[in-house]
Amino acid sequence: MKKILVIDDAATVRMYYRQVLEAEGFAVEEAGNGYEGLEKALTEAFDLYIVDINMPKMDGYTLLRTIRQEPTICATPAIMISTEGQIQDANAAYAAGANLYFNKPVRPESLITTARLLTGEHRA
């Protein structure tokens, strides 16, 4: 079973991604800010990170930059999902190390398709 770490400070957002992804057979863990996300990522192996931008203690960009420098986890794919809809936000996300960028709210179908693609979980 592929494991996904959802990192977002909004509890309802985490619960939503969890519900959508668990229904598709993914295992989901949660972290409430970037720093907690980094701790979990360093403690446990995941197949995908889903990362918000604006969070207390550590924002999503800083988190992704840190992950991309950590030898044990730097190759794990990451989707960044945020409320900030400008072109430069997507560019900043890619520069920080995101594999994909979405605006909120993300459609459940898009989340599922990209999660499958990025984790290599190809199912019918």
Binding site: I53, N54, M55, P56, K57, M58, D59, G60, Y61, T62
Partner: peptide
């Protein structure tokens, strides 16, 4: 600067 914004929010 996202880090600064979030520090200010806190």
């Amino acid at each position: 600067d996202a880090a600064l914004r979030n520090q200010v929010i806190e």
